[in-house]
Design a protein around this nucleic acid. Structure first.
Lengths: 227, 227
DNA sequence: GTCTATAAACGGATAGAC
DNA sequence: GTCTATCCGTTTATAGAC
């Protein structure tokens, strides 16, 4: 029931599946149409090209996903208490929770984690554009809850946050590269979130690296002045 | 002078370069031999196959790299003061510092970051095996400096650490996916290390996520007991 | 060890019948 | 909207001359 019945959606579902499992470049249109049991030519008929198919697969879930993240931020601000933990959870919660959806959701989340490292210029441009509104909305919110943090430092730490998020999103595959003993059972997304939020919040609140902060950022933000 | 003159090393250098720039699957042997100005057949002659070439490219730098990480940990322990910050720096410092080497080093570091997400079963097995000694050496060391942290929680946090490390190692490409304003100049590896170590140390030392810790880990490690 | 030439398979995309 | 058949470029890998 997670699979739609008409050709176009069957292609989207199967492509999402295979892209997430094998990567974009390693998945051929023939593999997709074969698994989806549709004709090869149907891909070009419905999506124009492989590139068009990839964009369609991403857009189908990314747009509602980012709307949800922004919606949660809106709600935090409406309620008047925007905490760092709340911000982090509004940002990383929706994609991680999507993993619970036993159907396409978990596969798509892995796919998203993968787009951060796949190498195709159109993909980078597409993702940057698709995330633009999200970034413009969250950046000032993070600045507001971490006002003592110099701008440059904050942006680096947000990069570190994204690093953790995409790593977790990419799933167990890469986690098993390090773990000799693999966790046979993957944890619930809610539990991962509860593990990762304190980690990230503590990292974002960490004391500044000493001299570096003073040498670089003294001009662009007021350093902590306890006096 | 970073480029060797004989065929075998020219292939390795060029392959490292192109693999890092475009990804493993997206780089063909023809592109490599063309850039290296060697014959296509030379690849199979020297390395047997594309897979053999990939393994050779990785092993050439990964083995001395991991030896250096372990060497630093050895030194920390010999000197008798193993701090969390010191451990983190021994683990992530060598790969990040390799970026300073204007020659193959920085390219290889990006390549390493990429292997964590490329999808090829032989690659995963190869990397897992290549990192086995490293993991077995560092895991107990982290446990020793964070004795109050339940085992499961520590392993998750080490995963988060690797997430940050591989993200930073993969370089500016993916960082620009989020940043509307790109930092035209990339920072010195030493400065990145000084930014990321406090972030990671704070994250690893973060207070436990409350109930979760008690519900799961109460049996396998003593929870913090201030009394 | 290095070359040319080519095999054999696979990739995306399209034309044209139905 | 779906199908078959096909074009055409690219891929890895190898055979055999030098």
């Amino acid at each position: 029931m997670a699979e739609a019945s008409d050709t176009k959606d069957r292609i989207l579902d199967t492509a999402e599946h295979l892209f997430a499992e094998r990567g974009l470049g390693q998945t051929s249109l023939r593999q997709i149409t074969s698994h989806a049991e549709v004709n090869l030519a149907a891909v070009n008929y419905h999506f124009g090209s492989k590139e068009g198919l990839i964009k369609a697969v991403l857009a189908r879930r990314l747009e509602p996903l980012n709307r949800e993240r922004i919606r949660r931020l809106d709600r935090l601000e409406r309620q008047g208490h925007v905490t760092l933990e709340g911000l982090i959870e509004a940002f990383i919660g929706p994609p991680l929770e999507l993993s619970r959806d036993g159907g396409g959701g978990s596969r798509f989340v892995r796919l998203m984690g993968r787009t951060y490292t796949e190498h195709a210029s159109f993909l980078h441009e597409h993702m940057r554009h698709a995330n633009e509104a999200l970034v413009n909305r969250f950046k000032p919110a993070f600045r507001a809850v971490l006002p003592e943090l110099p701008k440059t430092e904050l942006y680096w730490r947000l990069h570190f946050l994204v690093g953790v998020m995409s790593y977790v999103m990419a799933g167990n595959d890469m986690m098993q590269l390090l773990a000799a003993s693999r966790n046979s059972e993957q944890e619930e997304p809610r539990e991962i979130i509860r593990r990762v939020v304190p980690f990230l919040a503590a990292g974002l609140r960490a004391p500044l690296p000493e001299e570096l902060a003073q040498a670089r950022d003294v001009l662009e933000a007021s350093p902590r002045d306890p006096a």
